[in-house]
Design a protein around this nucleic acid. Structure first.
Lengths: 337, 337
DNA sequence: CTGAAAGCGCTAACAA
DNA sequence: TTGTTAGCGCTTTCAG
C-alpha cells in the first residue's frame, strides 16, 4: 500500500541507505546510482515519511508561532495577518511548516508550548511577546530551546525583532509639534507593556526637547484591550487649555477617540489632530483617514523567521536585537490647513 | 540528557509498554502501577516524543489548513483571522496542533500539500476552497485523505461547510426592495466562483419575485481581487433611471463603491443605498457604516475543524453539507429616512 | 561509493 | 495485569 524507502531500494536495486543518501543529496553517490534511485522514486511516487525522518534526525522542519490569546484580541487582530504573512512567505520557500498556537488562558498556552517543545514537534519558536508571556519565555530559556521574540526582552541573550518605539513615538509627536501644536495629549496602554511605555517615553522626549511642559492631565492610560468609551475625554476637552492634538498608540484607539470627539462636536483635524500607530486598515478607512506610524509588521514577521532559521542552522547572528524601521504615514487626521 | 519512556519505566520498575499504557490511559492497569508510573513521570518531568508516537501510531494529532494565496488576498484577509480563530479555539481544547499553509503559486501550494499529506505530517486538512484549488481537492480525493472544505463543492461525497449564499443574497436584496428600491445594481465577482454566482442568483431571484426586471446594465462583475476603481460607476450613475441601491458581494467592494459615489457627489444613503457581505470591520468603521450580511466566518472555521475531527475519529456525520446561517446587520448605508 | 546493522522513542500484538 | 518482542520508516555509523 504505502511505499517506503525499502520499496524504492528494491526497485532501484540498491540498499535503503543509498536511497536515503540520494534524497539527502549526499555528494558521494555515483551519478548512475542517483539516476536509478531517482527513477525508482519517480515511478513509485515515493515520498519520505516525515515522522520517521524527524524521529531519527531529531528535527522536524516545523516551527511554531505563539500568539497572545483573546485577552489581547485587538492587538492580535492587527498583528496576526501581517506577521503570519511575513512568516509564511518565508517558510513556504524554505520547506518549513508553521504551527500556529494560541489559547484562552496562560495555563493552556503553557501546556501547549511545553507539548510542542518537549514533544519535539517543532525545531524552534517565534513568540509574540508581552508581559504575560514571561513564564513561557523563561521556560524556553531554561530549556535552551531556540526561539525569537517579536517584541522586546530585558534579557540580552534573547533574540528579538522589534521597533524602536521611543524614536517612532518621538517622530510622530514631532510631526505634531512641527505643525504648531503645543498642547498635545497622549493616550496609551499600561506602562507595564514596554511597547506602551516606550511610546510614552518618545512622546515625553519630543515635548521636552521642544520646551513644552508635560501636563499629566493630558496623559491617559487605558487597560489596553478592554472595552472602553474614553469617558475622560469630554472633561479634558472642556478645559480652557485643552489639547489640540492627541498621540495614541494604536489605530483602534485613535478611531475610538475620533468617534468620541465627533460626539462632542469637535472636528478632526480642524479642531484637533489625532495620530496613531500601526498603519492598519482602520487608519486608511476611517474618515477622516488617520495619520499613523507604519511599523512594518510584515517585516517583523519575516525577520523573525529569517533569524530563527539562521539560528537553527547554527548561523545565529551576533547582533541579537534587530530593529525594524518605522515610517510615518501622514493622512487627514493631522493636516492643519 | 533527554528522558525517554525507558527512563520512566526503569524508575517506576515496570516495562516501557506499561508506561505507554498508563499514558494512553489503557483501563486495564492496576491503580498502584498507574500511581508508580505517574510519579516517575512527574519526577523525571517526562514528555513523550511526538515523532516516535506518530511514527508508530500513524497519526500526528496535527491538522493542516490550506489558505488561498496572495492572489486572493482581499478575500483571505477577511477570512483569515476569523476562520483560523474558530479552528484554533477548537483544536486548543482538543490537543490538536494546526499547521497553516499558503503559497504564492498553485504549484508551490500543491507541493506543500503533497508533502504534508504524503509525508504524513497531518491527519487531515481543511481547505479554504475556490476554483484554483480544484487540483488539490482532486488530489486529496484520490488519496482518500480526510479533508473538509470551507466553501462549496460539486462532488457530493465531499464534506463542506458553507453559507446558503443564494438565500443570503436574496435576503439582502429583499431588504432593499422592502425599503422601496426598484432600481438595484449588483456588483459581484467572477461567475466562475460559485459564491459569487450564487449571490448573483439570490439577487436575481429577489428581483424576479418582486416583479422587478433585471437590467444587465446594472450588473457588474469585477475580477475579484484586482485593484480597480470602479470606473463604470460614473456612467451608470449618470443614467436617467440610475440605480438607487447597490448590492455588493463584499465589504471592501462596498467601501470602494461608496468612495466612488462620494467623488461623484452622491450621498449614501440619502441618494443611494449600498449593502454588502461579510460584516467585517470595514463595514463597521466605514462612514457611513455599511449594512452587511454576517456570514459567520468564525463558525465556518469552527464547524470545519469540528467536522474534520469527527471524521478522523471515524464518526463522520451522515450529512456532508453543513450550512452556517447568515444574519443581516442593518446599518447606515441602507437606511432610508 | 555502497551495504549491513543498529537504533531514534514509541506502541501493540502476543504471551505469560 | 504486565513484560517481551517486533517494528513503524528513516538515518547513520562502520565496514568494505
Amino acid at each position: 500500500m504505502k511505499v517506503t524507502i525499502k520499496d524504492v531500494a528494491a526497485l532501484a536495486g540498491v540498499s535503503p541507505s543509498t536511497v536515503s543518501r540520494v534524497i539527502l543529496e549526499n555528494p558521494k553517490i555515483s551519478q548512475e546510482t542517483v539516476a536509478k534511485v531517482k527513477d525508482a522514486i519517480e515511478r513509485l511516487n515515493y515520498h519520505p515519511n516525515m515522522m520517521a525522518k524527524s524521529l531519527v534526525s531529531q528535527s522536524t522542519s516545523t516551527v511554531g508561532v505563539i500568539f497572545p490569546g483573546p485577552t489581547e484580541q485587538a492587538f492580535s487582530n492587527v498583528f496576526f495577518n501581517e506577521a503570519i504573512r511575513g512568516i509564511i512567505d518565508y517558510t513556504s520557500k524554505h520547506n518549513y511548516d508553521v504551527i500556529i498556537t494560541s489559547a484562552n488562558t496562560l495555563a493552556e498556552l503553557q501546556k501547549q508550548v511545553v507539548n510542542l517543545v518537549r514533544g519535539g514537534k517543532v525545531d524552534g519558536l517565534i513568540v509574540l511577546s508581552n508581559r504575560f508571556f514571561d513564564s513561557i519565555v523563561q521556560f524556553l530559556t531554561d530549556q535552551k530551546f531556540p526561539f525569537v521574540i517579536i517584541g522586546n526582552s530585558d534579557e540580552p541573550t534573547h533574540f528579538t525583532i522589534d521597533n524602536d518605539n521611543i524614536t517612532a513615538s518621538y517622530d510622530v509627536t514631532m510631526h505634531l509639534i512641527n505643525q504648531g501644536h503645543t498642547s498635545i495629549g497622549f493616550i496609551g496602554g499600561p506602562r507595564s507593556i514596554v511597547m506602551s511605555s516606550d511610546r510614552f517615553l518618545g512622546y515625553s522626549k519630543a515635548l521636552e526637547e521642544s520646551g513644552i511642559a508635560i501636563r499629566p492631565e493630558l496623559i491617559f492610560e487605558y487597560s489596553m484591550y478592554s472595552e472602553n468609551n474614553y469617558h475622560e475625554i469630554p472633561l479634558v476637552m472642556s478645559l480652557v487649555n485643552r489639547p489640540t492634538a492627541f498621540v495614541t498608540i494604536s489605530d483602534d484607539i485613535a478611531f475610538g477617540i475620533i468617534q468620541k470627539l465627533k460626539e462632542l462636536g469637535r472636528k478632526v483635524p480642524e479642531d484637533i489632530s489625532v495620530v496613531s500607530f500601526n498603519n492598519t486598515i482602520i487608519s486608511q478607512i476611517s474618515s477622516p483617514q488617520i495619520t499613523s506610524m507604519e511599523i512594518g509588521i510584515y517585516q517583523l514577521g519575516y525577520a523573525s523567521i529569517f533569524t530563527l532559521l539562521r539560528i537553527l542552522r547554527g548561523e545565529a547572528p551576533k547582533e541579537r536585537r534587530l530593529i525594524i524601521p518605522h515610517r510615518l504615514m501622514v493622512r487627514e487626521s493631522s493636516i492643519t490647513k
